[in-house]
Design a protein around this nucleic acid. Structure first.
Length: 291
DNA sequence: ATTCCAACCTGATAGC
DNA sequence: TGCTATCAGGTTGGAA
């Protein structure tokens, strides 16, 4: 689900519910693929801590606590970080949805996929972290502790410039789309925004990276910054699971040019959008506008 | 060093 | 109705 824009919108909207609050009670699910730290450790260590700040690195969120430790969060494909006040059908499975009448859908109750519940001392709504597929990650970093996953990240994709792409793409036979998805080169781009940026740049996703000119790299960097900035402005893309922390949907899915639109007419030339597998990912492009 | 591919999970949907 | 196959906003580790 969440790429840089969704994670950034989540950060901005959850921060007021998190920062400055003292954690009182913590609930977790059992140890699983989701937890990089033992959930028992989280239940022992988080109570009494005050959240000091919340920053984003690529698709990661990093919450600093008042004892110098940090909580590292990745939302994977289906991760959702939201307020106990949030109401959204996206927080319910289809079966759970069917079992409820509309008037019963007025609040969220933690289910088996809700891996972390933070309750606060001031009685404000709790904050929940839910992840159906468990591709997300949760890890407590001790004060000063470094983490390989963070250190491997390249510069934030919002700051990308054409020169970076040009230098990194020399001698790479790989499709340009694979470069964009490489978090060690550029942090934050995922499958949706890679395809959207390539459309804006008029570049075929399978194009060999090394064959891009400096000029094309600059146009691509431009497209990336434009699409990411616009997606943040519109609250991200709510295509299947993503909800903002208040339960509201993003709106960028309505501005998508190519992602998920195979068979539909290209907005620029009318040619049907094509789906192919590139860089092992479902990839959408206009065969005419992206020669 | 780079590229590829399977694996990690669960659920929704399309087709028979 | 039910079964099977395919697909999904991601990342990792190890093989080629």
């Amino acid at each position: 689900m969440p790429e840089l824009p969704e994670v950034e919108v989540t950060r901005r909207r959850i921060a007021p519910l998190l920062v400055g609050r003292r954690i009182a009670r913590v609930r977790t699910t059992a140890a699983s693929y989701f937890f990089l730290s033992d959930p028992g450790l989280l239940r022992r260590r988080l109570p009494h801590r005050v959240v000091a700040g919340l920053e984003r690195r690529g698709k990661y969120l990093l919450a600093s606590l008042d004892d110098g430790s940090r909580l590292l969060i990745h939302l994977g494909m289906t991760g959702q970080l939201f307020s106990g006040d949030a109401v959204s059908l996206r927080l319910l499975s289809a079966t759970a949805r069917a079992a409820l009448t509309p008037e019963e859908q007025t609040s969220f109750e933690p289910d088996i996929h809700t891996h972390l519940c933070l309750h606060f001392a001031d009685g404000e709504p709790p904050v929940y972290l839910r992840d159906v597929r468990k591709f997300g990650k949760l890890l407590l970093l001790e004060p000063g502790q470094r983490h390989a996953r963070l250190e491997r990240l390249g510069p934030d994709a919002l700051t990308v410039d054409g020169e970076l792409l040009f230098r990194a793409s020399r001698k790479r036979r790989t499709p340009v789309k694979a470069l964009l998805l490489d978090q060690s080169l550029l942090a934050g781009v995922g499958n949706i925004y890679a395809d959207e940026a390539l459309f804006l740049a008029g570049l075929r996703p399978a194009r060999r990276a090394a064959r891009l000119s400096r000029r094309e790299c600059c146009v691509l960097a431009d497209g990336l910054r434009r699409v990411l900035t616009r997606a943040i402005e519109t609250g991200g893309s709510s295509i299947s699971d993503y909800v903002a922390p208040d339960g509201s949907d993003g709106a960028y899915q309505d501005e998508r040019r190519v992602y998920g639109r195979s068979g539909e007419a290209c907005g620029s030339c009318g040619t049907p959008i094509v789906r192919r597998v590139v860089a092992q990912r479902g990839t959408y492009y206009c065969p005419v506008c992206q020669p």
